[in-house]
């Protein structure tokens, strides 16, 4: 028996919104420690890895590990039936071919349940090595979203260049060029407004705007985003979920042909 109850059900809605652009289907791996998911987009350019720790749920029971393969478009249709202040419970029997979502209003006066068919998915699991990144940039997530949106109007790719002074995002296209520079700025009133750079050595990497824009669907999940970069390895874009876990995206860089 698997059962996970989240009073802050809106969080689950936001998590789904943050991945459904990239993934049509994925397997939620449920274990005693929590729920995790790892999947590549269909073009094998980016990867989503997320973790929701069991202690972040208000009630969590997982007698044995279960893999819940879901069509995320269909899951999103069901999640749209939950209000933002609903309590959400996910339930599945061991070896079940369906999953049940229960939505309760805070006053318990309305309780809805939706049963969805599960899928058997061939999951390609990738081993991601621990990496000491050359540059780690922490910045406001809305700022990152804004920059990705703005520069995608200029070109298909963004070059992210990081030095210890700051981080620069650049795009070029038929109409011209655009550059956005952010200086390191840790002395701000609110912690979430800080731009902090930890640099071992400068890096400059090129990434596809389309994927960066998809990653920014996670913006409502966290006030800050962390970009981890090293030369010639995938970028990691991480949104930390308070007291719960994380949503991480990996994106292969564009390389000179």
């Amino acid at each position: 028996m698997f059962e996970a109850r989240l009073v802050q059900g809106a969080l689950l809605k936001k998590v789904l919104e943050s991945i459904k652009d990239l993934l049509n289907e994925a397997t939620w791996e449920c274990a005693a420690t929590g729920i995790s998911l790892q999947a590549m987009d269909s073009s094998h350019v980016s990867l989503v890895a997320l973790n929701l720790r069991s202690d972040g749920f208000d009630k969590y029971r997982c007698d044995r590990n279960v893999s819940l393969g879901m069509n995320l478009t269909n899951m999103a249709k069901i999640m749209k039936c939950a209000s933002n202040d609903d309590v959400i419970t996910i339930k599945a029997q061991d070896d079940a071919d369906t999953v049940t979502f229960v939505f309760e209003t805070p006053n318990q006066e309305k309780i809805s349940d939706y049963e969805m068919k599960l899928m058997n998915l061939d999951t390609e699991h990738l081993g991601i090595p621990d990496t000491d990144y050359s540059c780690i940039v922490k910045m406001p997530s809305v700022e990152f979203q804004r920059i990705c949106r703005d520069l995608s109007q200029i070109g298909d790719s963004v070059v992210i260049s990081c030095t210890k002074e700051g981080v620069k995002f650049s795009a070029a296209g038929d109409l011209g060029t655009g550059n956005v520079k952010l200086a390191q700025n840790a002395n701000v009133d609110k912690e979430e407004e800080a731009v902090v750079i930890e640099m071992q050595e400068p890096v400059s990497l090129t990434f596809a705007c389309r994927y960066l824009n998809s990653f920014t669907k996670a913006t409502p999940l966290a006030p800050q985003v962390q970009l981890s970069m090293s030369s010639d390895v995938p970028l990691v874009v991480e949104y930390k979920l308070e007291d719960m876990g994380y949503v991480r995206y990996y994106l292969a860089p564009k390389i000179e042909d």
């Binding site: 699991h125 990738l126 081993g127 596809a208 292969a252 564009k254 000179e256 042909d257």
Partner: peptide, 14 residues
């Protein structure tokens, strides 16, 4: 023009 690389070039299938 730079070309898009594949993630599996970096991470092994396990």
């Amino acid at each position: 023009t730079p070309v898009q690389n594949d993630l599996q070039e970096y991470f092994a299938l396990v």
